[in-house]
Design a protein around this nucleic acid. Structure first.
Length: 272
DNA sequence: CAAGACTCCTGTCAGC
DNA sequence: TGCTGACAGGAGTCTT
């Protein structure tokens, strides 16, 4: 499941081979994604040049002279740059054929992803983007911000940091890991956090995401050209997926609780 | 406004 | 071996 570091890695990889390329043709094989792929997408994109690729949260933005393509990878989405004449992947829903005889392919078995189009002057004003919370690696995502935002919130701190209206890009895996690093139990209510804990948490989120970003940065090729985007990450996870196993710090058995239908694993000794 | 339930979808895996 | 059912999960939307 692509989280923010993976999406950013995809972006960096795509910039290398897509910017300045012209779209020759768009093929929509399966328009039924998270939202329907706009029927006018092919005509809107035809003959336009990809000027830049940016990111907001886990949304990728492909900027054109007129309009912006918005892509979300959802749970199982992938963007691959393949030769124009390639063997068709299963679940290959949208294909952009490029002027360099390659094709950008959106592949998404579970179809939680999205391929959308906006012509707002500022694409960040799109309804899906304009209410998003802060970027975790931005300076503005700080102890003060977390502290203030959490004061009125009674939900669990894990659900709180996974709320994209507070901070974007913290999925279940990194939420679990960040709370472990910060020494905070996932079921604590957000408004019970002390300032010191908010500080630890903000730093832990940044730390975990930066670390993951560095790790994926070394495997950009895996994302852009071909399969197997995962595997290189699991070995670094300290709590996620390790319920019942010993804590890597103190040896206590890691426990699991479900918060908001999400599995949450923590060390009862290291996390308070 | 806040919080929880519900929803989309398919690959994977446990259990029989 | 094959079937069935549970589960996972991002995040918007609906309900309370």
């Amino acid at each position: 499941m692509p989280e923010l570091p993976e999406v950013e890695t995809v972006r960096l990889g795509l910039i290398l081979c897509l910017v300045k390329q012209k779209i020759n043709k768009v093929i929509v094989r399966q328009p039924k994604l998270r939202w329907p792929v706009p029927t006018h997408l092919p005509s809107k994109l035809k003959n336009q040049v990809i000027m830049a690729i940016s990111r907001r949260g886990k949304y990728l933005l492909f900027h054109f002279k007129r309009g912006t393509l918005i892509v979300h990878l959802g749970m199982s989405g992938r963007l691959l740059v393949l030769p124009k004449m390639h063997e068709r992947y299963k679940h290959e829903h949208v294909v952009l054929e490029l002027s360099n005889q390659k094709a950008l392919c959106f592949i998404d078995p579970r179809r939680f992803g999205a391929v959308l189009w906006t012509e707002e002057d500022d694409p960040l004003q799109h309804p899906l983007l304009n209410k998003l919370g802060r970027e975790p690696l931005d300076r503005k995502f700080s102890v003060n911000y977390l502290w203030e935002k959490s004061r009125t919130r009674k939900l669990t701190v894990k659900q709180f940091i996974m709320d994209g209206h507070i901070v974007v890009g913290v999925g279940n895996i990194y939420a679990n890991e960040a709370l472990f690093v910060a020494g905070i139990r996932p079921a604590r209510s957000a408004n019970s956090l002390t300032q010191k804990e908010c500080d630890n948490l903000a730093k832990a989120i940044k730390h975990i995401l930066r670390k993951a970003l560095r790790k994926s940065g070394t495997t950009i090729r895996d994302y852009v050209t071909s399969r197997n985007t995962h595997g290189h990450f699991g070995q670094h996870l300290k709590v996620y997926g390790r319920s019942g196993e010993p804590c890597v710090v103190c040896g206590n058995i890691l426990q699991e609780v479900r918060l908001g239908q999400r599995s949450s694993v923590f060390c009862p000794k290291c996390q308070r």
